[in-house]
Design a protein around this nucleic acid. Structure first.
Lengths: 391, 391
DNA sequence: GTTCGAGATTGGAACGGTCCAAAGAATCCG
DNA sequence: CGGATTCTTTGGACCGTTCCAATCTCGAAC
């Protein structure tokens, strides 16, 4: 007994590292009092405390906590009262330790600033929350951890699943994680890994949609401001496929941007600047809304009116495109739906970890607003611009 | 032996709730093999496994894990090799159970869509990460949990601290949490609670800054599009104080918005619409950038050029204001700095949980772009608009 | 008045780490 | 060469849960 006291009193005062917080808290226990000091000054109440207070065993409290039907009403009430009085909250760490489930899924974003993510998260959350799972978010850009790094954190936390949203700077290490952890990629098409599902919108198709819309309006000189990563690649491919299919490959131009407003602005200056002369494109399809808005600015500065002198289409249909003062046509990438499907996939994969990788593409839709019109000097066939044009 | 086998096989199949995921995972263990099946088929490796492989005790592995200097180089290397080979990651739950620290702080946002948060999180993260703390984010709006609800989650996770970012829909229950948990509020001025620190920008002062800028330019009929919550209240107060101080209280108008682009648009239509006639304001100070952009759109539709016919100032200096096509003057609320200071506060409070509540206000600054100018029919004194005007 | 069975309750072994006290090994010094 | 000292290493208690197996309680059936 005596020894046991001294032990517990000395226990934390001899720590070698200087975690001041801990010190201060523990310091509030000046000397070890009773024969076994389980209930420190402000230690949160445990299941034992509740049991003691309710006059039952901890096992019974545990049963009450999980709504077991095999508990008498009297004791159940006593336990619930004790829980209420003590403000008891079960310790998730202890619980998940034995249950080997954390009821937490890790969500890895690459840039919290991109408004597109919010919708995906919304869709994700609705389903996950309904299944009693919480989301733990990490921003890959925020903390510049490489793949290996974030892997460590999520693995240590033993999350039950992982959702990767968007384009990751570094995907090495993801394969290793996916070996042990149900993993789903949302809003990107790579990397293709053995048991990793992919949910995304059909970027190539969306890009074709946007480009064909411009073609139907009568545009012949159409430019594309490209983005990075596989998504950028796919959107570019859709653009090129559509222009080629209409025999416009010769007059289709691609300038590279980087997905930012600044990048879009610069690309647009290169495309529309005075150097171009009369071969200037009459329409631009941008990698995303942000680039599109950059192009909008450039057009403004170059004295080109949108849509009279220049038609413009973006991608992602973020709230930016909905701002009246911008009012940009944009391809809706169904991000909410992508989020929902990703959640669905993750739940399925948690149930069947070894199922073959699935890949789901959601159909994107073009959202028409005020940034496109037939070209000013339309060379003939501009009929597609009116209602009734080809689907 | 036999019995023990049946045990582990039946273990989870009798659960009352139908968590399919769990079932399937456990189902992958068809029959319990050896006398004590510690290393299940795909159970992650534990410290024991590492110890065994390295031919040492688990205590020694533990010492290696925390860089203890009291380990011989030979054994250390053996342990590190074993860790590498097995892909071992320590279990955070087990660790935090005994250490009674999770090295995790909860961050509560109310709307992930607001671009302002990203900077705060950035600032928060930089400091917290440096101190080995990870952030667990929850969006109060995403999952419509009331104060009580999110409280439960964070308390169960035993986060080491809590940061509330922005205006919470429901703050009841926060007091109770703050009793047990180091808590800091960032970007808002309420609620004032005993041991809860507050870090924010000085909204009243920022509003004065914006308003005085307009006044110095020569504007006399200035309107404010107000926002909600205490922050909205403070910015409004700053606006009223500034107009009153310059004897413009009579011509100062306030219309209420809701912080959205739509709300700003409507408020602006009410302020600038034809009904106003010649008493139309020549300048508007908006609660935030989003409302300001709504006002920008309204001005455009009403045929008012910005800044020629209408000067406009927003608040928060988000990337929206920086979009060239909008190019809005805006009050910089120093959100990155607010995040950094909030982290600082939280660390201090974790060290001294009982210190009295602190309140820090960061000085905001006006960022000048292209959305303000002297009024068209400036009645005399417009000197303040030029460099050299009064500070 | 046993015996039985069903239902309610409880003790105790995990879970995977940390850390203390004590044991073992190596080195030093007289 | 023996004892003291220091450096390494280890066994085991403990953190707060869950859940199995065992016990306890009680009324019904024999």
């Amino acid at each position: 007994m005596e020894r046991s006291n001294r032990r517990s009193a000395e226990r934390t005062t001899e720590r070698t590292d200087a975690r001041t917080a801990e010190r201060a808290v523990e310091g509030a226990t000046p000397h070890g009092p009773g024969p076994r000091e389980r209930t420190g000054p402000d230690r949160p109440p445990t299941i034992r405390g509740v049991a003691e207070r309710a006059g039952v065993s901890k096992s019974l409290v545990s049963l009450v906590l999980q709504d077991s039907p095999r508990v008498s009403d009297a004791k159940r009430q006593a336990v619930l009262d004790a829980i209420e009085e003590l403000g008891y909250r079960p310790n998730a760490a202890a619980r998940s330790l034995v249950a080997r489930r954390t009821h937490t899924v890790g969500v890895l974003l690459n840039d919290m600033r991109n408004p597109w993510f919010a919708d995906v998260l919304d869709g994700l959350n609705s389903l996950l929350h309904a299944h009693g799972l919480r989301m733990l978010m990490a921003d890959g850009r925020l903390d510049r951890r490489t793949g290996q790094e974030f892997a460590r954190t999520f693995q240590e936390l033993r999350v039950d699943g992982l959702v990767v949203v968007g384009t990751l700077p570094d995907t090495t290490g993801l394969a290793e994680i996916a070996e042990r952890l149900p993993t789903v990629i949302a809003g990107n098409h790579e990397p293709r890994l053995p048991r990793v599902d992919i949910v995304a919108n059909d970027d190539e198709r969306g890009a074709r949609l946007a480009t064909e819309h411009l073609i139907r309006l009568g545009h012949r000189r159409i430019a594309h401001i490209a983005g990075q990563g596989l998504v950028g690649e796919l959107r570019r491919r859709g653009f090129e496929a559509a222009t080629a299919a209409h025999g416009l490959a010769g007059s289709a131009v691609v300038e590279s941007g980087d997905g930012t407003e600044e990048g879009g602005y610069r690309a647009a200056v290169r495309l529309l600047g005075p150097a171009r002369g009369r071969h200037r494109p009459t329409a631009v399809f941008a990698y995303n809304d942000l680039s599109g808005i950059g192009a909008l600015s450039a057009a403004g500065e170059l004295g080109l009116a949108v849509p009279a002198d220049l038609s413009l289409v973006g991608y992602d249909n973020t709230y930016l495109a909905r701002i009246r003062h911008l009012w940009l046509n944009s391809v809706n990438n169904a991000s909410h739906e992508v989020g929902r499907l990703a959640a669905r996939c993750l739940l399925d994969r948690m149930a069947h970890p070894d199922a073959p990788a699935d890949r789901q593409l959601v159909a994107p839709e073009l959202e028409i607003r005020g940034s496109t019109a037939p070209p000013a000097e339309a060379p003939g066939d501009a009929s597609g611009g009116r209602p009734g044009g080809a689907a």
